[in-house]
C-alpha cells in the first residue's frame, strides 16, 4: 500500500491524448519505476496488460469461444473488482465492434456469434437492427462503427483510444493512491503509446525532431550550407 504513494508521484503526467506528441516516459524507465511494486502486484499488472493489449498473433490462432473463455479465466484471476470492471468494459467494446464486423461480413445467424460481457445477449436479440438497438446509450461506439463502415480504420482507432484513455483517467483519479490507480496509469501509457505509434502527424514531427537533432550533431548540415553557398 505504502509504495503506491512514492510510485504514483514519481510517474510523469500523461497529457490528454490529442495533445500527446511524445511519451513522457520510456517503457524502460517506466519499468524501473514499477519495480517498486511487490511481486504479486507485478504479476497482476502483467495479466492486466496482456488482457488490455492482447497479442493479436496469438488470438488469431484461437477460435472465438476459446478467446472468450481465455478472457473470462484471465479476468477471474484478477483481484481488483475495479480493474475487472474497466477491462471488462474494453472487452465489451471489442465484442460489440466484432459483432458489427461479423454482421457486415455477411454473418446472418446471431447464434453463431460468440462474445463477452453484458451486451452479448442484447446484441444477439437485436441482431438485425442498425446498431443492435444501442444507438441511444453508446453514441461514441456507434461513431466508431460508422468510421469502420466508411473504411476509415485510423479514425476509428483514434476515437476508440480516446474513449479508453478517458475511461482509465477517471478511474485513476477516483482511486487515489492505490494499485488500481497504478494499473490505470500503465494502461493509459499503453494507450498513448499505441496512439502515437499510429498517428502519422506525430510520427512526422518525431522524425523531423530526430533528424534535426542528428544533423545538428554532425557537420553534415554545415557541409550542405557550404555547398549551396559555393554554387
Amino acid at each position: 500500500m505504502s509504495q503506491y504513494y512514492t510510485l504514483l508521484t514519481s510517474l510523469p503526467h500523461l497529457p490528454v491524448l490529442d495533445k500527446s506528441r511524445q511519451l513522457p516516459i520510456s517503457r524502460l524507465a517506466l519499468e524501473r519505476r514499477l519495480s517498486m511494486l511487490s511481486e504479486t502486484d507485478c504479476a497482476q499488472l502483467g495479466a492486466i496488460e496482456a488482457l488490455y493489449f492482447p497479442d493479436y498473433s496469438v488470438l488469431s490462432d484461437l477460435a472465438d469461444r476459446e478467446v472468450v473463455q481465455a478472457w473470462q479465466s484471465a479476468l477471474l484471476s484478477l483481484e481488483s473488482d475495479v480493474l475487472k470492471e474497466r477491462i471488462g468494459y474494453q472487452l465489451e467494446i471489442r465484442t460489440l465492434l466484432a459483432a458489427l464486423r461479423y454482421r457486415d461480413a455477411g454473418g446472418k445467424n446471431p447464434d453463431q456469434f460468440i462474445g463477452f460481457g453484458r451486451w452479448h445477449s442484447f446484441i444477439k436479440n437485436h441482431w438485425f437492427e442498425s446498431f443492435f438497438g444501442m444507438d441511444e446509450f453508446q453514441p461514441q461506439i456507434q461513431k466508431i462503427a460508422r468510421y469502420l463502415k466508411e473504411n476509415r480504420p485510423g479514425h476509428a482507432d483514434k476515437l476508440l483510444d480516446q474513449m479508453l484513455w478517458q475511461d482509465l483517467f477517471y478511474c485513476e483519479k477516483q482511486h487515489g493512491f492505490s494499485f488500481s490507480a497504478v494499473a490505470c496509469y500503465v494502461l493509459r501509457w499503453g494507450v498513448v503509446s499505441r496512439y502515437l505509434s499510429a498517428d502519422p502527424d506525430a510520427a512526422l514531427i518525431k522524425f523531423d525532431d530526430v533528424t534535426h537533432s542528428l544533423l545538428m550533431k554532425t557537420t553534415f548540415i554545415d557541409d550542405l550550407n557550404q555547398e549551396s553557398l559555393n554554387r
Binding site: S2, Q3, Y5, T6, L7, L8, T9, S10, L11, P12, R33, F177
Partner: peptide
C-alpha cells in the same frame, strides 16, 4: 508524515 513523505520522495524523482 510517512504518507506525505513517501509522496514527496516520488516527486523528487520526477
Amino acid at each position: 508524515c510517512a504518507i506525505a513523505g513517501q509522496a514527496a520522495c516520488g516527486a523528487l524523482l520526477e
